[in-house]
Design a protein around this nucleic acid. Sequence first.
DNA 1: GCAACGTAGATGACGCGTCATTTATTTCCA
DNA 2: TGGAAATAAATGACGCGTCATCTACGTTGC
Lengths: 176, 176
Amino acid sequence: MDGPSRPGPSDRAASGHDARWLDADEQRAWRAYLRMQGRLAAALNRQLQLESGLSPADYEVLVHLTDTPEARLRPYELQWALQWEQSRLSHHLTRMRRRGLVEREECSEDGRGAFVVLTEKGRQAITAAAPGHVGVVRRFFFDGFSREEVALLERLSTRILDRLDNADAGPEADPR
Amino acid sequence: MDGPSRPGPSDRAASGHDARWLDADEQRAWRAYLRMQGRLAAALNRQLQLESGLSPADYEVLVHLTDTPEARLRPYELQWALQWEQSRLSHHLTRMRRRGLVEREECSEDGRGAFVVLTEKGRQAITAAAPGHVGVVRRFFFDGFSREEVALLERLSTRILDRLDNADAGPEADPR
DNA sequence: GCAACGTAGATGACGCGTCATTTATTTCCA
DNA sequence: TGGAAATAAATGACGCGTCATCTACGTTGC
């Protein structure tokens, strides 16, 4: 993913969007962010894959399951927790089931639904993967940041998240 | 991707990694960052896809090509600029070529190599896509951030990037 | 009681990204 | 000069994520 940096002519005229170009500062910041996030994600991915055969997505699912007393959740609960698209979750659970990390259990109260249950293998996998993963997160993300910077980062992230949430439900914008 | 939040037992003992757990603040910050980046990437992806049929990856490649006087680059130059894995770039260029966004041209100076050339269709695609893309970046990322916050964000990103770079070349020194 | 609608979840097709491997060419040097 | 090593790039296999669509069960209201 890259940024909206002067793609050719310094055009204007958008399809209802605000099309002010990014200025030099914004452009540098955006590019730095994009590159950072791409490379950080790749590094996390690589480490997890190599050390434990899990993907970041697997890790996330397993974290939520182990965070749950009974280690079992309805898919829609998981979906809510992860904020993933429904079909992504469904596909992913299928793959994890195939690899024995989770199991599917029918739900008696609701004939449409199911439970995702953590298997012993799944528990072992995340237990084994966690320390190394934390280490990498620390090494690349937290080390060298002060408490204030960490706090600020959380605030900025949250602010963007709010915008995204509001946009999803949000104003039908641009009646132009 | 999710975070290293207490996945079961508060283990320690890593394979050479630092395995200190994340404290509550760090955990919140990390989770917020992860969720933000995932959803922001998804939003950018969706917008580009819907409005212009481009992926963020396409966009990036096209930006770099249009930033180049002759609108043609050697794949390895593109790779350097994008910091992508070689095979990712190769696959991606194949797909873009199939869709007529770029063309391949043999390289006379180096029989192994080639040039990636922007096509007219490619130029039109990014010209059409850019305003809307910038709009979304602005709406979700920059609006509501002050100049200082933008600057800070760039600094934090850059700092993480430096770590990633140093890790790639690694403790085993860079011979240059 | 049943039609209309809503909700839980699965599936197929397709583009993307990674690792491992392969092919072709150039460079280096003994 | 000839062979080893390095470099440019492509490819196959495979897991991931998205959209569109589908199935099946539940809920509501007449």
